[in-house]
């Protein structure tokens, strides 16, 4: 039924140990060719879904079970469901004494493909640490949520596990999260979500 592709060139010797795999296309049998039986099969599948789901919806509606009939998440009404390992908003980690873990090594700023991290370093009072961040801004409006910053960090100072995906604002400045906000010391100004002209 199928015309095998003509062998245009010799198979390289290095492939000799691997036998060529011949792909045969399935040939339509008579029962598939007349289509009606297949239509029937399709109808059986969709009807099964129809009646099973209808029963589930009815069961829910008359209060037999609390489980919803469909798996749909009605997002703005119900909270968004984010996978545990999903890459969500960043947070900066703290040491046990509460100071930021970040040593301002600029690894994340360098690796960031979106160039949305801005770090200004300063001297740390602790000589063993040497450096720390004075300014640490992430522009969420530019971030592509690739997670490279998390991978690059040698201090495990930045993570993307807050589970928060709703970060909209009405102007670009409010999309920038500063160090205190990323550390969780300060809440993002709620006024950011009010339109400002």
């Amino acid at each position: 039924m199928t015309d095998p592709a003509p062998e245009t060139q010799e198979r390289p010797a290095s492939l000799a140990r691997h036998p060529a795999r011949i792909v045969t296309r399935p040939v339509m049998r008579f029962q598939e060719r007349i289509y009606l039986i297949e239509v029937w099969h399709g109808l059986v599948i969709t009807s099964r879904h129809f009646f099973v789901n209808l029963w589930r919806h009815t069961r829910r509606a008359i209060g037999l079970v609390a489980r919803a009939g469909a798996v749909t998440i009605q997002y703005p009404d119900d909270p968004a469901v984010v996978a545990k390992r999903g890459r969500t908003r960043h947070r900066l980690m703290k040491r046990e004494d509460g100071t930021p873990r970040c040593v301002a090594c600029m690894m994340c700023e360098t690796v960031c493909p979106a160039k949305c991290i801005k770090i200004v370093a300063e001297e740390s009072p602790d000589v063993m640490i040497e450096k720390r961040a004075k300014i640490f801004d992430i522009d969420m409006g530019l971030c592509v949520f690739c997670g490279y910053c998390v991978e690059a960090c040698p201090e495990d100072a930045i993570r993307m596990d807050t589970g928060q995906v709703e970060m909209s604002s009405f102007n670009r400045q409010d999309m920038v999260w500063n160090m205190q906000e990323l550390l969780g010391n300060k809440k993002k100004d709620p006024a950011a979500n009010v339109p400002r002209l």
Binding site: T46, H49, F50, N53, L54, H57, G69, A70, V71, T72, Q74
Partner: peptide
């Protein structure tokens, strides 16, 4: 609605 119920949607 029918398409939704067939496709496990609401």
């Amino acid at each position: 609605k029918q398409s939704a119920v067939i496709q496990d949607r609401i």
